[in-house]
């Protein structure tokens, strides 16, 4: 009994704490520019040769099921692929080799935003941005509402729609456990071209800037992910316009928490003001009704009183009249009696 009670209290405290932390993180997001010294990956698409070693390594380090076609099969490039059940990352081909120019490939996986939309959207806090850089996901609390998929500006996560019992969100973990062990993410380790560079995010930006500076003829003058969606840990430099390699340039730079900050900020106002306002309106209407009722009652009373007074007056007048008439009659009678008496006396005297 006592233990369960303690647990319950503990749970309450934890709930309170997590609620408080959540609010604080949200408030702090106003000028959050990423955890200091967090890691990231820079993908230089000009170096990617489409060997799919990253896909193979990802499959291996995450113990994912064997694919239908082997990783050496290049026919997969005929179709645009995405993250689906059992696949955390894919390499897509965006341009074929043409006029002596090599084909263009890009690896695609979760971009591990600095302020992830998925984490902001999740109503069970299943997503967490770690100080090391990766965004991690806890399937043990996931309800499966898929708001994270909706909120991701690139629609990067997948979902196990085909699993009726324990479907989970499918996404790259940036090999968070390996990073904690001091190892490289599987894909980065496997990439023969170093098209994927692992390092501190700040260093990656320096590397990207230096490559663009040295080779203005090779790169677009932009580091995709430096500011997109509030900044991402996984960034890209490319020779082709980013839209042509499947990276939308109309994402904007607003960190996702800012998108709903205003709407959430209105909650306390509504909760605080509405009851007061509504009760007030109710009170005013009630009072109006009361006053109206009282006025009505007063008016009725007054009318009754007036009528009464009128009736009384009429009665009085009537009475008076009657009295008068009576008095007159008496007088008349007296007079008549007197006259009669006088007449009689006269006659008697006569």
């Amino acid at each position: 009994m006592s233990i369960s009670r303690r647990n319950f209290l503990g749970m309450l405290a934890a709930a309170g704490a997590s609620a408080a932390v959540g609010k604080k993180a949200q408030a702090a997001s106003a000028d959050f520019t990423g955890y200091p010294d967090s890691y990231g990956v820079l993908h230089d698409t000009t170096l990617c040769v489409g060997c799919r070693s990253c896909e193979e390594a990802c499959n291996r380090v995450n113990n994912l099921p064997a694919p239908e076609k082997p990783f050496t099969d290049k026919t997969v490039f005929e179709k645009k692929r995405r993250v689906v059940t059992g696949v955390y990352t894919v390499v897509n081909q965006y341009k074929e080799a043409k006029d002596g120019k090599p084909p263009i490939f890009r690896k695609m996986q979760c971009n591990h935003c600095l302020e992830p939309a998925c984490a902001n959207a999740c109503f069970v806090s299943a997503f967490k941005k770690t100080p090391e850089g990766p965004v991690v996901y806890d399937p043990s609390v996931c309800v499966g509402c898929r708001f994270c998929l909706l909120a991701c500006p690139w629609a990067l996560p997948g979902y196990e729609y085909d699993d009726p019992f324990a479907p989970v969100v499918i996404r790259c973990t940036m090999c968070y456990p390996r990073i904690l062990e001091g190892k490289l993410p599987g894909c980065v380790e496997a990439c023969p071209m170093e098209a994927l560079t692992f390092g501190k995010r700040d260093d990656l930006i320096k590397i990207a800037r230096e490559r663009i500076r040295r080779h203005p003829e090779r790169y677009q003058d932009h580091i995709y992910g430096e500011h997109e969606n509030g900044g991402t840990s996984w960034m890209y430099i490319s020779g082709e316009p980013f839209d042509d390699v499947g990276l939308r340039t109309d994402i904007g730079t607003t960190p996702p928490p800012k998108l709903t900050a205003g709407a959430l900020g209105a909650v306390p106002i509504v909760v605080g003001l509405w009851p007061v306002l509504l009760t007030g309106i109710y009170g005013i209407n009630k009072r109006k009704e009361k006053i109206a009722a009282k006025e009505k009652a007063d008016a009725v009373a007054k009318a009754i009183a007036e009528k009464q007074a009128e009736a009384d007056a009429a009665l009085k007048a009537e009475k008076e009249k009657a009295k008068k008439a009576q008095a007159g009659a008496v007088e008349k009678a007296v007079k008549k009696a007197l006259a009669d008496a006088a007449k009689k006396a006269k006659e008697e005297n006569a």
Partner: peptide, 23 residues
């Protein structure tokens, strides 16, 4: 939802208070 029996989770297990959906 993927796991309907977890619908009460946002209230009793893990609260995602930053989410509009929580509201």
């Amino acid at each position: 939802v993927g796991r309907p029996w977890r619908l009460p989770y946002p209230f009793v297990v893990s609260q995602g208070t930053t989410s509009v959906m929580f509201e």
